[in-house]
Each structure stands twice: as structure tokens, then as C-alpha cells.
């Protein structure tokens, strides 16, 4: 069992409180996932020509600044790094693919949690309340974010196995459920150039959607294609640079509830996660229908 949440803020005046509301929602899903938690926040856009990557190393004393200096020298570009416990947000005035290639070649011990120009991803073991505190999520503003609380049933409780999974620039996915055709789909995606970092079924779904988006599909089209190609149980919440989407499989045995006001739209596995949102008393609250793609866009 897991809990998933997503919050998409429509009213620019409420974007300062994105992190505070998302934290409250994630903590509300503690009973569904006390082992580990992860969160992706879309905020703090990079300057033109810059990219940012969220990196993880289990050692909190890892020499991030030295690594950022090496990168700056290698690419002959500026870099900046800010530290949050065992995570670091690395900004570079460079093309993000080049930074990722350099990191993979020179610092394979560092895990890339997310990359792009907006999205930052934090995942860690422990209760959701301690994870959001550790990374200061509540203080973050932003446009949208998604989160996951995990109760592991099949694979180890590690940061690597925690959601959200990133598979493209500023794209991430959280999942409640399990996929049954992920092995075959992984091979299919590998033949089409996707590179995998774990044996996790949700990573397969994330890379599947990234593959479809890379082919030019819209967020909605990518998710609709998933209805045909992904076999299993799922409630997904996906974030992209300017969009947010929710999808449930046809059997719909994994829960989901949506709530929407003029100011925001929120999704969670259970209503109690939404109970603290401002104005939720007057929100439209409904259960997303199976096989229907619900999506929102900033544009």
C-alpha cells in the first residue's frame, strides 16, 4: 500500500504556500506509507541557459562543492550548488544532458533524482513528517508538486526505490499499485533507447510516459497511450514542466480522490490528506473515474 498526492495551484497568489500545503497532504498519507517518502516540487525556475539537477548521496558529508567545481572546470561553465541534508541542488550554466553525462562518467556514486529547469526531487527513508522537515519542503513556493508515501511490499526500503521517478526533463511520476507487464515493457523501452536505473515497475511506467512524450505526445495523449500498454493496477499522478495529470486503470481498485476550487486542484489517495487545504470545505470533491485522463496545464 502507498499514498500519493498532487497539488496544482491555479491562482498565482497562492503559489507561495505550495510547499506548506503539499507537506500537509503528504503527512496526511502517513498511515498509507510510513517507510519512506518522496516529493517533487516545481519552483524556482532556472535562469535562461541554466539547468538544475537534484542529486543524492547517502553520505551527508559528501564533497558536493568540490564536485561542482570539477564540473565547472570540465564544462568551462559556471555552477552553483545548494545543500539539503544528503541531497544537493546543482545548477549549471550548461545543457542538462551534458551535465548528466559528465556526472555518470565521473561520479557514478551520485544518484540523479531529477533534472530540468524547474523540478526538484527529494526522497528519503522515514516518516513523511520527518522527510518534509529535513528538506524544508514547507518553505517552498511553486506552481505544482507531487508526492508519495511508501509502504514497501516487494522491494527494499531505500531511497532508490522511493518515488517520484524521473524519466525526462522536469517530468516525474508517482504510482499506487503494481504493474504486471513491466519486464516485457522494460525490454521494449530499452530497445528504444531508454536506460533504466532500477528494477522497479514504476520506473518502467515513468520511462514509458517519457518515451511517449519524447515522440511528441501531449501529457494527455501519453497517458491515454498508457491505458493500452500498461497492464496492472495503478493510480498515477504525473507532473511535467507545465502540467499535472491523474489516471486510474479500468478496474480502479487503487483509491483516488480529486478536489478542485478556483485556486487549486488537488489529488490524493484518500480525502483525509486533503482535509487541511484552504477552502476545501467548498471544493468540488469527486472520485476520478477509471480510464479517464484528468489533466491541467499552466498554459
Amino acid at each position: 500500500m502507498c499514498g500519493i498526492v498532487g497539488l496544482f495551484v491555479k491562482n498565482p497568489d497562492q503559489r507561495a504556500s505550495l510547499g506548506a500545503n503539499l507537506s500537509r497532504m503528504l503527512v496526511g498519507m502517513t498511515d498509507r506509507g510510513p517507510d519512506s517518502a518522496g516529493i517533487a516540487v516545481y519552483h524556482d525556475p532556472s535562469e535562461a541557459g541554466w539547468c538544475k539537477l537534484t542529486l543524492f548521496h547517502p553520505d551527508e558529508t559528501y564533497a558536493w562543492r568540490a564536485m561542482a567545481g570539477e564540473l565547472a572546470a570540465a564544462l568551462e561553465e559556471e555552477t552553483d550548488v545548494s545543500l539539503k541534508a544528503n541531497h544537493a541542488v546543482l545548477a549549471a550554466e550548461a545543457e542538462e544532458g551534458a551535465v548528466r553525462a559528465w556526472l555518470t562518467a565521473h561520479h557514478p556514486e551520485v544518484r540523479i533524482m531529477g533534472y530540468g529547469t524547474l523540478m526538484e526531487v527529494y526522497k528519503d527513508k522515514g516518516k513523511p513528517a520527518s522527510v518534509v522537515d529535513k528538506y524544508g519542503i514547507a518553505a517552498m513556493g511553486g506552481t505544482h508538486g507531487i508526492g508519495h508515501t511508501r509502504m514497501a511490499t516487494e522491494s527494499a526500503v531505500t531511497t532508490e526505490h522511493s518515488h517520484p521517478f524521473t524519466a525526462a526533463s522536469d517530468m516525474c511520476l508517482v504510482h499506487n499499485g503494481s504493474l504486471s507487464n513491466h519486464n516485457r515493457l522494460r525490454l521494449w523501452l530499452q530497445r528504444r533507447g531508454q536506460v533504466f536505473e532500477s528494477d522497479n515497475d514504476t520506473e518502467v511506467a515513468a520511462r514509458y510516459f517519457a518515451h511517449r512524450l519524447g515522440e511528441g505526445a501531449s501529457l494527455r495523449e501519453a497517458m491515454e497511450a498508457g491505458l493500452k500498454d500498461l497492464d496492472g493496477f495503478y493510480t498515477f499522478a504525473m507532473g511535467t514542466r507545465d502540467g499535472f495529470a491523474v489516471l486510474r486503470d479500468g478496474i480502479a481498485c487503487k483509491p483516488a480522490v480529486l478536489a478542485e476550487t478556483d485556486d487549486w486542484v488537488a489529488m490524493a489517495s484518500e480525502y483525509r490528506s486533503l482535509a487541511g487545504l484552504p477552502g476545501v470545505e467548498d471544493a468540488k470533491v469527486w472520485e476520478p473515474e477509471p480510464t479517464v485522463v484528468y489533466s491541467w496545464s499552466l498554459n
Binding site: Y271, R272, S273, A275, G276
Partner: peptide, 9 residues
């Protein structure tokens, strides 16, 4: 009369 259920099970 029960108030503030807040989605409790």
C-alpha cells in the same frame, strides 16, 4: 452530532 470528521475512517 459529529463534527470535523476530516475524512477519518
Amino acid at each position: 452530532r459529529i463534527v470535523n470528521p476530516r475524512g477519518a475512517h
